[in-house]
Simulated scan of single mutants.
Amino acid sequence: MQHFALIGVAGYVAPRHLRAIKDTGNRLIAAMDPTDSVGVLDAYFPEAAFFVEFERFDRHLEKFRQNGQALHYVSICSPNYLHDAHIRFGLRQGADVICEKPLVLNPWNAEALQRNEQETGRRVYTILQLRLHPVILALKKQVETQIVAKKHDIDLTYITSRGAWYFASWKGEMSKSGGIATNIGVHFFDMLIWIFGPVQKSEVHLHSHDRAAGYLELERARVRWFLSIDEKTLPEAIQEKGARTYRSISIDGQELEFSEGFTDLHTESYREILAGRGFGLVDAAPSIALVHDIREAEVLGLSGEYHPLAALPQAKHPFK
């Protein structure tokens, strides 16, 4: 049984990490979050110590180690802009670290963490769960075994509806979340680069508070992409069903169906990490560099190879 600590236990994604720790037969000894709405712990680790102050959390882990017990992993579900600081904290605890995506916001943050890994002898892992999805694995194998390399034409559409609360939270602040392309798109960009090769060209046609769109040329693919948190951008058929999320990848005109199979991917990610096969800093680096470049890029407007949904009317920011 491995001992875990978790930072950001009141967060949206934390229950997936709690379940992964439990389902892999391990123990959460302590959790920390400045928000005390953490009743979710009762469903997984009611005996875990909980702190709203980082200093007391730190002291608890120090006492745990002084009593001769090992802290094996620190899991991080805190806001994106705090990831690199919390990763360094975990490494200084003598633990390996499992951090929710995006691992960090900027390429230089990842480079600094590589030096921290070398200094501490510990590892940093991230959650890139799409790499474990059976449909995505099959696609990667198909592309790799093609006798004649070709450039595929891809449309990526990901819409995950969020309410007005989103813009009042840290997620609505570019400096804290990295914006739409980073916050909800980084794992899709990672998946595309992983399968179709490195980025050769990137254009941004739209980048606002609730959506982003652009064009990527990869070694083996041309990609038009659209990301949104506005429910009004959902296809009509999806809206009629009352659904609030839509994932679509069209490859050479053929729809890749992968809407199912997401339930246990965090647990599978933990199993891979515990077995020594997790994804680390080097794996995450290309997508981190891409979303940083998207964030800093000039917005070109509706020109060139833009995604059709980029032309949809846009709602105003609810608080501006």
Rank of each mutant, 00 (worst) to 15 (best):
Arg88Ala: 13
Ser202Arg: 06
Asn80Phe: 05
Val204Thr: 15
Leu290Glu: 04
Ala149Asn: 03
Tyr166Asp: 06
His209Ser: 12
Arg59Lys: 13
Ser202Gly: 03
Thr145Ile: 06
Phe189Cys: 13
Ile29Asn: 03
Thr263Ala: 14
Leu71Asn: 06
Arg162Ser: 10
Asp33Gly: 01
Val9Ile: 11
Ser78Phe: 03
His317Gly: 09
Gly8Tyr: 02
Ser208Asn: 14
Thr35Phe: 08
Leu227Ala: 02
Ala311Arg: 06
Thr120Arg: 02
Ala85Gln: 12
Leu218Cys: 07
Ser161Gln: 07
Leu281Met: 08
Thr126Val: 08
Ile7Val: 12
Leu265Gln: 10
Asp58Asn: 13
Val199Arg: 02
Glu268Cys: 09
Val52Ile: 08
Ala289Trp: 00
Glu305Gln: 13
Ile184Met: 10
Val143Phe: 00
Glu231Phe: 04
Arg277Leu: 09
Gln69Asn: 15
Ala95Lys: 06
Gly11Gln: 04
Phe89Gln: 03
Tyr44Thr: 11
Val40Ser: 05
Arg16Cys: 00
Asp155Met: 10
Ile184Val: 12
Phe4Gly: 07
His17Ile: 15
Ser75Arg: 01
Ser303Ala: 12
Val38Asn: 13
Phe50Gly: 01
Val204Gly: 03
Val223Glu: 01
Ser78Gln: 03
Asp23Cys: 05
Phe64Trp: 13
Arg220Gly: 03
Ile195Glu: 00
Val38Trp: 03
Glu236Arg: 12
Lys151Gly: 11
Ala237Tyr: 05
Thr182Pro: 10
Glu272Phe: 04
Val135His: 01
Ser75Tyr: 00
Thr245Arg: 11
Leu281Cys: 06
Met174Trp: 04
Arg92Pro: 02
Val135Tyr: 00
Ser177Pro: 05
Thr182Gly: 11
Gly304Ile: 07
Gln146Trp: 02
Ser228Glu: 06
Ile193Gly: 02
His292Arg: 14
Ile238Ser: 05
Arg162Gln: 14
Leu227Val: 03
Ala243His: 09
Phe196Leu: 05
Leu41Met: 11
Glu272Met: 14
Gln200Leu: 14
His60Phe: 13
His307Thr: 06
Leu128Trp: 00
Lys150Thr: 13
Ala112Asn: 11
Ser303Phe: 01
Ala49Ser: 12
Lys320Ser: 12
Ile193Leu: 08
Leu234Met: 11
His292Leu: 08
Cys77Thr: 11
Thr24Arg: 00
Lys140Arg: 15
Asp230Cys: 03
